[in-house]
Design a protein around this nucleic acid. Structure first.
Lengths: 393, 393
DNA sequence: TTGAAAGCGCTAACAT
DNA sequence: ATGTTAGCGCTTTCAA
């Protein structure tokens, strides 16, 4: 009740200096380069500062030192399990090193992103994390002009003049196609993200198509749709695919949200997944492991990606830009769960063969995986003890 | 190739002034108070500034003007659909008004929060959004000393000396209890969030218990567990409840993630939900509508909460703190979906009565809702056309 | 209405 | 090792 409004205003370094008899310069040194001050004086200065409850003035500090101890991050949206985790990883890592995070999102608009870069640059940042590749050269010019280190994420480009941290979306998408082809699928559908202004979505479509072409399989336009990353949109898309005269036996979705929506639509229509139709996702958000059936997807280590981006940015603070940029290639893991299986025809044939031969071991779910990194189907479904492991983070 | 490194360094206002013959003071006025400058000169100044590609220096600006055009937000975690949406709403709203967002998370640690408040204050913010009530008075002191307006969210306290935007967690939890009691449940379990350092979790337990007490029903300790907000934790908790000699017929969960985990555990054990056991959530994150069965929960308008917090903070920039703080009370809506129904015994009795009487209309899911705001069960489950509506945002 | 000049609070050369 | 001093780039009195 008594300590209400009349708290003293925050004191300045100079005030503390005058009151204590220690110069502002020394006080400043104690704060910024403690090793330059004799231990005894340093100790006294620290006491004085603490007793005064001194809080530095960031703007003054930045103006004089040309550093802000602030990193920027711009993502399409934070309302996404993937980007939220990336931001989380970035934020925790820089915070541990005394940096704050200036954050912005733009809902996949390059124009808004450009404005945000400008705004953050103006506000002052020592480094910046961006997502993807869709932006004009003026953005990179602004960054270079101000000399602010930056990384682009969720893609990998060893030829880029700046650090990238991510993976090859087209190649990863090819892996999904190859896996589906290997287990016997020949008629595919695609529910992708909106490729305009989203290089990841575009690359994933392109990679999938390329893999099919290599095996001489067509992907006609009516089997490819682009949708916002929402469950209802995916349901509509899946409904449309199922309305085709010859519906696909496998549907590749641009991410796990779309896959989840596609799955729900199938279940709602009482299609059996994966017996009648297979579905794949991308990202391995938590829901992909916990829904029923679990979604076959590629695991993106999002938190670690954020950490890596932070590390590159932090390193750039001390190291002069010598030599080529450091790129971080992130391995994705194909996680096979319950939404994928051989198509009905192949499965029928297999069953026929099996009953004809003597060996009637009912190995219902065993699948040949094309890549060494793929986990087995058994280790990633929903029994309790396995789910628990995935929460170790 | 040519425009590589040698981009000119960013120019200062003074340089532009010297080059153009317009004084720095006037240029500054054009930027900050355009109406104080004669239109002709203003036009010329704007041209000059644009041609120079002038970008203001935020730190210098803040130092001179004592404003940062930056808001702070500190939440427990951004890896949560709820807080992500809140941050999104806040960020979009302040960005539209030319403000940037300094963002931090602390994983429910008040100590880390205090450090973050200090760090943000130091970096310079014009306003701050916090979550909940668990923090020491020194945090409020820092804020008041620096004169930085702030709001606390996700709770409502009309007696607080600063603005709050949220709801009464205990009262809302009572609503859930009343609803479950009204449809006939008498034996309850609770899977709550960890109440230590989380006032929302604590209040929800307290409210639930209070509602039961009012009807003379006990809630013994072995039926209440506190868990981190993860699916596997909730599954363990539900497994433990089901192991009790007399398992609950209804389980209130601290949020939708816990409810989802509890639900999955039941389904995994082939318990029928809601016929054999009822489950409720809190928040109404998207998954609650899209899983099967849909989760009965309270709808928290998270994006709007963020917008409201932003509005209060923005208002505080211009208005002097006159009179009592403005509080925003947020109405939550009880959304009844497929995870709740009368308990087995009550249902059996109802069936018996129904078959005894002549009227055999099989009204399987119709429930008397205790509150006017509750939606009907029919309007919030998973058929496609309804799901689409919920994505209108 | 415009310009000159005085800081905003701090850091980093420069002296000592 | 410590103190003195000159800015950092801008906004805002204050005069004209």
């Amino acid at each position: 009740m008594t300590t209400r409004k009349p708290l003293p205003p925050p004191g300045t370094l100079k005030e503390v200096a005058d009151r204590s008899g220690i110069s502002a310069a020394t006080l400043s040194r104690v704060l910024n380069h403690p090793d330059l001050v004799r231990p005894e004086l340093r100790a006294r200065a620290e006491t004085v500062l603490a007793e005064a409850g001194y809080v530095p003035h960031g703007a003054a500090r930045s103006l004089a030192s040309r550093k802000t101890r602030t990193m920027g991050a711009i993502v399409p949206t934070v309302d996404s399990a993937l980007f939220a985790k990336i931001v989380d990883g970035l934020q925790q890592t820089i915070q541990a090193r005394g940096y704050q995070l200036l954050f912005a999102s733009n809902n996949y608009s390059p124009a808004r992103e450009a404005a945000e870069v400008r705004a953050l640059l103006e506000r002052g940042i020592d480094g910046l994390m961006l997502v993807g590749t869709v932006r004009g050269p003026e953005v990179y010019d602004m960054l270079r002009q101000r000399g602010v280190p930056f990384v682009t994420t969720c893609h990998y480009d060893a030829t880029a003049a700046w650090p990238t941290v991510g993976w090859d979306n087209a190649a990863e998408s090819e892996r999904i196609a190859d896996y589906l082809l290997d287990i016997g699928h020949r008629r595919f559908g695609v529910i992708a993200g909106q490729a305009k202004d989203n290089d990841r979505a575009a690359e994933r479509i392109a990679g999938f198509r390329r893999a099919l072409q290599k095996r001489g399989i067509a992907l006609p336009p009516e089997r490819v749709t682009e949708r916002p990353y929402t469950v209802p949109e995916a349901r509509h898309a899946m409904a449309a695919l199922l309305r085709l005269p010859e519906p696909p036996t496998a549907v590749m979705c641009g991410n796990d949200i779309l896959a989840y929506g596609a799955l729900q639509e199938c279940l709602w229509r009482e299609l059996r997944v994966p017996e009648q139709i297979s579905i794949t996702g991308f990202d391995n958000i938590e829901m992909a492991a916990h829904c029923r059936p679990g979604i076959t997807t590629l695991h993106v280590p999002a938190f670690e990606l954020g950490e890596t981006a932070a590390r590159l940015l932090l390193d750039a603070q001390t190291t002069a830009p010598s030599g080529p940029p450091e790129h971080a290639f992130i391995e994705l893991e194909l996680i096979v769960r319950g939404t994928t299986a051989p198509p009905p025809a192949v499965e029928r044939a297999r069953r026929a063969r099996a009953s004809a031969s003597a060996t009637s071991t009912a190995s219902t779910g065993s699948i040949v995986l094309p890549h060494a990194t793929a986990r087995s189907a058994a280790s990633s479904t929903t029994p309790l003890h396995v789910s628990a492991r995935s929460a170790r983070k």
